[in-house]
Design a protein around this nucleic acid. Structure first.
Lengths: 228, 228
DNA sequence: TAATCTTTATAAAATCTTTATATTGCACTA
DNA sequence: TAGTGCAATATAAAGATTTTATAAAGATTA
């Protein structure tokens, strides 16, 4: 499964079109027609990219974008029927990464999605920290050049942390992404597997330099080693 | 002087138009009409962004892009008279970050340039006062460039104060937002944690320059340092 | 069977709450 | 205006609680 994409689109026909298109490219799709539920979803279920139609019914799309940018820097591609220069400029200055006007070609949209995902990947292209390297293509992990065997769960957690490097992932976010929504009251699952990851990847598991605990919040993978 | 932008454009009229436009927005402009000199220039003189017209005379623009991406990940905005879907997709997949077709509006181009510069500069919305910076996306706080560890409660209080900078927040408001409505008769909770925040963030905790007490009311975060 | 995940128990760490004491701010009075 | 006393605040430190780390046993899966 490729990257998760959240689609916030009012019109059912367009929503269905986008959903089909994205799924045919192996993306996981989170579909929303109203702004508030979409924001709430993003808190627990991080997406790699957001498609936003400015014409929402429950709130203004520009406002939605501003609110989102207060805490989330996931790439946003705005899709809009509004061709006016003012709308474009406002959306881009509100933090949108791209602006596509209807009608658009499916191939172009997908290319723009790839371009914007690449950028995220560029930033996180550093699928490495300290002596550890992760190759998402082969699903393998090396430490100081030596292959390290991770179980599926361990690998999934590590990949998730790396995709959101330097950010805090809450227990709920990790549980939702790795185990599923039904597991949000089992933080001990995360703890046990984090301990395993530290055993396998940290020089001193008792004083981790990269796989950090944020007490009361969750875990964070820091790319630059920090003493304490 | 703002960011340096390299313009690779064949047509003298367009080259001159872009150059004037960019300079009027305080950018430093490196102008080229041929591909090879532009590549050579980028080796020694790094640019923050590249505007590329696909219709070059000495080589194909798509090829130029491929060559560039072999070693350089500076954002590229393609400007082209070619409206065909195939050209767009190819350019984006060759590593372009955006694609603008002629004719375009100057305001839109500038907005797209800002959007593409933003991610390089990683200019997220950060709250700041004095030497302290708070990044809500990564949930981190720095003081004079050094990471400062705040507990969950300390962070929650600081974020709340920053979201309402320069305004007074009463004990009740802070208690309600951070602990919950049941805690409105425990002002001592706030006091203890405010003292902690001052220890960690103020140069002289006993005479705070930013985290101010409003006796009998609550607390205020002032953005501009004040003596007393 | 071997590998992995789940569950449990216990120890350790981090954080929060509570308390005590010192200090400050402020209204009121002489 | 200076002084007095009360209320509000600052702060350290102890105690209590929550959260986390870790090992290891049991359950599950392939």
């Amino acid at each position: 499964m490729a990257e998760t994409i959240l689609v916030l689109e009012d019109d059912p026909a367009m929503q269905s079109f986008l959903s089909t298109l994205l799924k045919s490219h192996q993306h996981k799709v989170l579909s929303f027609t109203a702004g508030l539920p979409a924001l709430q979803c993003l808190v627990t279920e991080p997406a790699e990219l957001i498609l936003l139609d400015l014409g929402l019914s429950d709130m203004d799309g520009q406002e939605w974008l501003q609110q989102l940018r207060g805490w989330c820097d996931t790439p946003v591609i705005v899709i809009s029927a509004r061709h006016s220069e003012q709308d474009k400029v406002q959306a881009l200055d509100n933090g949108a990464n791209d602006y596509v006007t209807k009608p658009f070609s499916a191939a172009e949209l997908m290319a723009r999605i790839r371009a914007n995902l690449r950028k995220t990947a560029d930033v996180r292209q550093v699928f490495a920290f300290g002596e550890v390297q992760l190759d998402p293509v082969s699903r393998t992990v090396q430490r100081s050049g030596q292959a390290v065997h991770l179980t599926k769960t361990e690998y999934d957690i590590l990949l998730l942390l790396m995709q959101h490097a330097d950010k805090v992932l809450t227990h709920n976010q990790i549980l939702t992404r790795v185990w599923g929504k039904a597991y949000i009251d089992r933080p001990e699952y995360v703890r046990v597997h984090m301990a395993q990851l530290r055993q396998k990847l940290e020089a001193n598991p008792a004083a981790p330099a990269f796989l950090k605990t944020e007490s009361g919040v969750g875990y964070r993978l820091t790319l630059a080693a920090t003493g304490v």
